[in-house]
């Protein structure tokens, strides 16, 4: 699909301008894509094992919970968890990488020593202790996972978008504009030649008339 445009000098200038703009944009987008991919690999390295580690951890945690469940009644567990509940705030700092917003999560979840836990150890078993510990670790890992995974997902979608733009500029927009430019230049040349020839014809005619006189 080539746009039909008038073969005028004005139009030619416009198209030339568009071509320079498109090439500039193409270059910039290419750089953006490369920068994004660089960032992506950085994060990927970090996150590589977190998922699989977390899966194992959660499996352990689930079984620890099952054991704790066997030693304590559901009611007891609920009471303990209410006593142990604390405020967990997460600060989300947003880092901007090439227009992609990457969250950086900071949390102050720490494993607390006994006195500050809200329940008494005399009433509970070590299984419960184990279970709580496992889950605290899970929480900690899940937070890391959340950060990296979200970053990866966002970077990936942005990379995809940028890549598409780069390609469409490179393989569709710029060639199409080039084609148009060529077309107009050709038509303009043709017009010029046409004018030139008709001038010559007129001149010859005039000379012939003069010679006859």
């Amino acid at each position: 699909m080539t746009e039909q445009s008038n073969p005028t000098r004005m139009e030619l200038l416009k198209i030339k301008e568009r071509i320079t703009l498109a090439t500039k944009g193409h270059k910039l987008l290419k750089q953006k894509r490369d920068a994004l991919i660089l960032e992506f690999f950085k994060i990927l390295k970090k996150s590589k094992d977190i998922r699989s580690k977390l899966n194992v951890k959660m499996k352990n945690a689930y079984s620890a919970l099952a054991v704790a469940n066997a030693y304590h009644s559901a009611f007891e567990l609920e009471a303990i968890s209410l006593a142990n509940a604390r405020i967990m705030d997460v600060d989300v700092q947003v880092k901007n990488v090439m227009g992609v917003k990457i969250p950086h999560l900071i949390s102050d979840i720490e494993t607390r020593p006994y006195p500050s836990k809200g329940y008494s150890i005399s009433g509970t078993t070590s299984m419960l202790e184990q279970c709580i510990e496992e889950y605290e670790q899970v929480l900690d890992m899940a937070l890391q996972l959340a950060e990296t995974e979200i970053a990866i997902k966002r970077l990936i979608s942005e990379i995809e978008k940028t890549k598409r733009r780069v390609n469409s500029l490179e393989f569709i927009m710029i060639p199409r504009l080039d084609e148009q430019k060529k077309m107009i230049a050709f038509k303009l040349d043709e017009l010029e030649r046409d004018g030139f020839i008709s001038l010559k014809v007129i001149k010859r005619k005039l000379e012939r008339e003069r010679g006859l006189l």
Partner: peptide
């Protein structure tokens, strides 16, 4: 790229009982 916003929010856990119980115990 220096704009850093800070948002403070909470952690939520959503799921069935067997999923949430452990997180409750951990203090969420």
């Amino acid at each position: 790229m220096g704009d850093k916003k800070m948002v403070i929010g909470k952690i939520a856990v959503l799921g069935e009982r067997h999923f949430t119980m452990g997180f409750m115990l951990a203090g969420v």
